[in-house]
Amino acid sequence: MTDNPVENLAALIRCASVTPRDAGALDSLTAMLEPLGFAVERIAFAEDGTETVDNLYARLGKSGPHLMFAGHTDVVPAGNEADWSHPPFAAQIDSGMLFGRGAVDMKGGIACFVAAVARHLKSNGAPAGSISLLITGDEEGPAINGTRKLVEWASQKGEQWDGCIVGEPTNPNVLGDMIKIGRRGSMSGTLTVNGTQGHAAYPHLADNPVRALIPMLESLIDPELDSGTNRFPPTNLEITTVDVGNPALNVIPAKASASFNVRFNDTWTAESLRAEIERRLAEAGRDDRLRPGRDAADYTLVWRDRPSPVFLTRDETLIETLAGAVEARTGRRPELSTTGGTSDARFIKDYCPVVEFGLVGQTMHMVDERVALTDLEELTGIYETFLQRWFAV
Rank of each mutant, 00 (worst) to 15 (best):
L220P: 00
C112Q: 03
D315P: 01
P233F: 05
I319T: 03
G141H: 11
D368I: 06
Q92H: 13
P233M: 11
L98C: 08
N236Q: 12
L273G: 08
A297H: 03
E320H: 08
F386Q: 02
G109M: 12
N124L: 07
E384Y: 15
D344C: 11
L318Y: 02
G61D: 01
V114R: 13
G79Y: 08
E327I: 04
A296T: 11
E378P: 04
T374A: 15
S155L: 01
A58P: 09
L9C: 03
L376T: 07
P233I: 12
V18L: 10
D105F: 01
P307A: 14
V393W: 10
A128M: 04
A116M: 04
P309G: 05
P172C: 13
S28E: 12
E278G: 08
S337Y: 09
I239W: 00
G358M: 02
H72Q: 10
T338R: 13
F38W: 00
T321N: 07
A16N: 09
A116L: 04
R42E: 15
P233W: 09
R329Q: 15
A70T: 03
D298P: 06
A118D: 15
T300P: 07
A115L: 11
D105V: 01
E140Y: 12
T338E: 09
R304W: 05
M178P: 05
T321K: 12
N208G: 00
D222M: 05
R304A: 12
A256S: 10
P35V: 07
A201R: 04
G71S: 10
L29G: 02
G245M: 07
A39T: 14
E335V: 14
C15Y: 05
T73F: 00
N80W: 08
V310Y: 08
N124A: 09
N145E: 12
